[in-house]
Each structure stands twice: as C-alpha cells, then as structure tokens.
C-alpha cells in the first residue's frame, strides 16, 4: 500500500508538470490548435510598417478576423509586403477594401485594420489589397506640423 501511495503522488506530480506545459502553450502563448486550417491568405504593400510584427491581429470593425503571417521587404517595389491569413468565414470582403496599420492605445501594439470597400469582386486566396495606409510615425507627423506652421508664418 505504501508503494502504491508513492506511485500515486509521483503520477500526480508528473501529470501536474505536463499540465503546466499545456497551460503555458494554450493560455499563455495563445497557441490554438487547428486554427490555421480554415484561413485564406491575402497580401498588401505598405510604405511603412513601423512596429507591426508577425502574428499581429487583423481586425475589421474592431473584431479580430485574422493575423499577420509574414512581413518582408520587397526590393523591387521599395516597400514592405505584409502577408495576412483571414478566417474563411469572412469571405465577403470587397476587392477594393482598405488595409491600414493602426495602434491600440497610445503606446499599444500595432495591428492591421481593414475597412470595407464598395466593389462587387471579392478578395480571394492570394489576392492583393491595393488600397493601403501606412503606420503613423510620430516624427513624420511632427515634422509636417512644424513645416505647416513655418509656411503659414511666411
């Protein structure tokens, strides 16, 4: 009986360790099994993606509908190519929808927001979002503001 109790506690201990790893994977790292199967991919070119990272959210009306899968620099177009995986449920996006890079809060993380267009053709797997708005860079904004005030004074 003594050995049996020992084995029981060791079993519980090992189970607790494995369970902890599972919790870390699912709850903390946000790894969701099988969610990649039901998406289609679109891409867009941005002049500036400053601060956007892989796995960032893609949202529409504030609801997450997909995530950024890859960001790379296209040397022929001198711009950043962003690949996104959109949930297949959301298959009614017009082809002229706009993708813009937005910030959650003042210092929060960057994400891609999609606003709906008016065309009848739809975005399908592999298509490109032509209409894009780059990330807001604070230095550029301040520079433009200063330039405006200077030219007004002239």
């Amino acid at each position: 009986m003594r050995i049996r109790n020992l084995e029981l506690t060791v079993g519980v201990f090992i189970l607790a360790g494995v369970l902890a790893l599972t919790v870390l994977a699912l709850r903390v790292a946000g790894l969701t099994p099988g969610s990649t199967g039901s998406t289609y991919s679109v891409h867009a070119y941005f002049d500036n993606v400053a601060g956007l990272t892989s796995r960032a959210k893609v949202t529409m009306s504030g609801v997450t509908i997909g995530q950024v899968t890859a960001i790379e620099f296209d040397k022929n177009r001198y711009s950043a190519r962003v690949d996104m995986a959109i949930d297949s449920d959301v298959d009614t996006l017009p082809a002229d929808s706009t993708a813009s890079i937005l910030t959650a809060g003042l210092l929060g993380e960057k994400y891609v927001g999609i606003s709906v267009g008016g065309e009848e053709d739809l975005l399908v797997d592999g298509s490109e979002i032509y209409d894009t708005q780059s990330a807001l860079v604070l230095e550029e904004l301040i520079g433009r503001f200063l330039l405006n005030t200077v030219s007004k004074e002239d």
């Binding site: 790893l21 870390l24 994977a25 709850r27 903390v28 790292a29 946000g30 790894l31 796995r55 960032a56 959210k57 993380e109």
Partner: peptide, 15 residues
C-alpha cells in the same frame, strides 16, 4: 492582461 500576454509570448521562442 491575458490578450497582451498571448500576443507577445511565442510558444517556440519563449516556452
């Protein structure tokens, strides 16, 4: 608390 955590923690890199 949880969403920021899930967005920044990578399974392979961190865990």
């Amino acid at each position: 608390y949880w969403t920021n955590m899930q967005n920044s923690v990578q399974f392979v890199d961190d865990v």
